[in-house]
Amino acid sequence: MTDAEIPLEVHDLSVAYHKKPVLYGIDVAVPAGKLVGIIGPNGAGKSTFIKAVMGLLPLAGGWVKIFGKPYRENCRRVGYVPQRESVDWDFPVNVMDVVLMGRYGRLRLGQRPGAKDREIARECLEKVHMLPYAKRQIGNLSGGQQQRVFLARALAQESDLYLMDEPFAGVDAATEAAIIALLQDLKNRGKTVLVVHHDLSSARDYFDMLMLLNMRLVKFGPTAEVFTPENLQTTYGGRLTILSEVVQSLGSQEK
């Protein structure tokens, strides 16, 4: 595999907040066409990792390559779903306006989205079953609907690598199912998706590969190989209460 075919390659990546290290020495090469879950305890640096990849945080060391080039040169090939709480949902825009923002990266300075961008935005809304809400103010949506609007916006970016920060956080069951269907569809079209995920019990079913993170990279590999009690123990440290359930279910399913 040549460099240009590797969606995301990270070497010796380190990040610090106020001189306190948050991530160090991360080495990862994510192959194309995979759904990758980024798993780890609170404060493990999961969100920090994807923000650092996109250059939203200064790196203390190391480098990032997107399809063989620095992020800046290939930023159009990366779609981003930030955490839902990171924006003000009382902002005076409607659902369509937000999805159209996904097209902004392809427009020149001062250029407005055109008819084609609107058409793409409508298609993306249709994919998350939110087209009937296109004209609704974003504050008048449920949490799950807001999350789907964010996904539609990322789809409108028409990227090859997607970075999603906790898309499953606080959504209803219907939205969770819709998101999973969408991720599978992206994967089937050869896209690569990295998802910061909180729920250990569903992680094994959802993702092809897992990145176990706790300030350092504990393990990266196919879910079947990586999702072991030992690795989870290393990642989550002594917090056995969270683990016992998962470990038990692991044991019962291996029969």
Binding site: K51, M54, G55, L56, C75, V78, Y80, P82, S86, V87, D88, F91, V93, V98, M101, Y104, G105, R153
Partner: peptide, 9 residues
């Protein structure tokens, strides 16, 4: 609205 996405773009 979303400075994070703006910078990512």
């Amino acid at each position: 609205f979303d400075p994070g996405l703006a910078r990512a773009m």
